[in-house]
Amino acid sequence: MPVVRGGPTVQRPPTLTALAVSAALLLTACGGEEDKDTERPSTPAGVTAQAGSATSVHVMWEPSSDNKAVTGYDVFQKGEKVKSVQGGRSMVDVDRLAPATAYSFTVRARDAAGNLSEPSAAISVTTPAPTPDDHGAPSRPAGLRASAEGSRAAVLTWSRSTDDVGVTAYDIYQEDSRIHSVGGGETTTRITGLRPGTIYSFTVRARDAAENSSPDSVPVDLTTGAGPDGGAGTAPTGLRATARKGGIELSWTPPDTGEPVREHQLYLNGEFATTIVWGAQPPPGTVTYTFTVMDKPGTRYSVKLRAKLPDGKWGDFSAQRTVVVTAGGA
């Protein structure tokens, strides 16, 4: 648990006693053929396959629809199932492939009743030749930019990386999760499935055929367009995280709620860490907070915040920042 060094007081979360909860799920058979789900999900469209290395391929597709719900997707290589994922996912890596070999993939959607869609159109891809002597990582992608397309999509662009052998793919991350990959010759991509009025933080890494990955690009923040109800954003903005001697310094601008924001929740590596509380009037504009870390140099932290709104609810999360602990700090 981080310890504050100066600044606001810290409200420790109370110890929670685990409660055992039991529930009975009653399933009633209605009998009758008309109640059976026999409708297939729609056929997955927009299937792409990108060789990420000499032995792996990244397969992506657009989500299917179903009269009830799509519960999963199966990926096939020339009729043989090689991967299965849950219904909320639309991408997967197929590993343990042979270098310099042609492959053909199709995708089928699945529902809870076991109905399978028709196979998607087959997509072909060839893995590159192995590069056993390639130990150097590509350079960091530079110049990452993002622009919103309405309320549910974004377009990212960046400058081409260099590598001693060759860049085979660019991996796009939203916070700490890889959400997309494109070929090594691409420097732009479109991200879909975003939420309206939400702040996102994207980074890009370059990868070569030997699976060497570059350092993260500088992150870029983007806020999607407002949903039908509009409304002001509730996420802290301008978050910066800087490694200091023995700790990490954060600075950010609280959301404009019409009233002072007195509390923020701090999350480290996706987990709640502490509540930051200003006992008196919060400082105007940009605020700062420093906490102590005890982990060894080189430890990587992901940091994000959310503010407590005047109505008592917690607002949206800020963009996430990543910081690496250094030996002497800044």
Score class of each variant (00 low, 15 high):
Arg108Trp: 05
Leu156Ile: 00
Phe105Pro: 00
Asp164Trp: 09
Asp66Val: 02
Lys78Thr: 09
Ile123Ser: 06
Ala142Gln: 04
Ser42Arg: 00
Thr38Trp: 03
Thr126Ile: 14
Arg152Val: 11
Lys78Gln: 04
Arg110Ser: 15
Arg140Lys: 14
Asp133Cys: 06
Gly143Met: 05
Val47Trp: 03
Thr55Ile: 07
Ile123Thr: 11
Asp134His: 00
His58Ala: 08
Ala102Cys: 01
Glu62Cys: 04
Ala148Met: 05
Ser159Asp: 10
Ala109Phe: 00
Arg110Ala: 09
Gly88Phe: 08
Ala45Phe: 08
Thr43Asp: 01
Lys68Asp: 13
Pro44Trp: 07
Thr127Asp: 12
Gly136Trp: 15
Met60Thr: 14
Thr38Lys: 01
Val94His: 02
Asp111Ala: 02
Thr168Ile: 13
Ala100Leu: 14
Asp37Trp: 00
Phe105Met: 03
Ser42Glu: 13
Val167Leu: 01
Thr38Asp: 10
Pro99Leu: 11
Thr157His: 09
Pro130Arg: 01
Val165Cys: 12
Ser64Val: 06
Pro132Glu: 01
Ser42Tyr: 10
Gly150Lys: 04
Arg140Ser: 12
Gln86Ser: 14
Gly32Ala: 12
Met91Pro: 00
Asp164Tyr: 15
Ala109Cys: 01
Thr157Val: 04
Thr43Arg: 01
Ala121Gly: 15
Ser159Thr: 06
Val59Asp: 12
Lys78Tyr: 05
Lys83Glu: 07
Ser117Glu: 14
Ala102Ser: 13
Val92Phe: 02
Ile123Gly: 06
His58Pro: 03
Arg145Trp: 06
Gly79Phe: 00
Thr106Ala: 07
Lys68Gln: 14
Thr157Lys: 14
Ala54Lys: 00
Ala137Phe: 04
Val82Gly: 00
Gly88Leu: 06
Ala51Ile: 14
Thr127Ala: 07
Ser56Asp: 12
Phe105Ile: 01
Ala122Pro: 03
Gly150Met: 07
Gln86Ala: 10
Glu62Lys: 00
His135Gly: 11
Lys78Asn: 05
Lys36Leu: 06
Gly32Ser: 09
Ser147Tyr: 09
Ala98Val: 11
Met91Trp: 14
Ser53Lys: 11
Ala49Arg: 03
Glu39Asp: 11
Asn115Asp: 13
Thr71Gln: 02
His135Val: 06
Arg96Asp: 08
Val70Lys: 03
Pro141Phe: 04
Asn67Ala: 10
Val57Arg: 14
Lys83Trp: 00
Ser139Val: 10
Ala148Asn: 03
Phe76Asn: 10
Thr168Asp: 12
Gly72Glu: 12
Thr126Ser: 12
Ala51Glu: 13
Pro128Glu: 00
Gly72Asn: 07
Val85Met: 11
Thr168Ala: 13
Ala45Met: 07
Ala51Ser: 15
Asn115Phe: 03
Pro44Asp: 08
Ser151Gln: 15
Pro141Lys: 07
Asp111Ile: 00
Glu118Lys: 02
Gly87Lys: 03
Ser84Thr: 12
Ser147Gly: 08
Gln77Cys: 01
Lys78Val: 06
Asp133Leu: 09
Ala109Val: 03
Ala146Phe: 10
Thr43Asn: 02
Arg108Gln: 14
Trp61Pro: 01
Asp74Lys: 11
Val47Gln: 11
Asp95Leu: 06
Val165Tyr: 04
Glu33Thr: 10
Asp134Ala: 02
Phe76Asp: 08
Val92Ser: 08
Pro63Val: 02
Trp61Ile: 08
Arg96His: 12
Tyr170Glu: 15
Ser42Gln: 06
Val75Lys: 06
Pro132Gln: 10
Asn115Gly: 15
Thr157Met: 00
His135Arg: 05
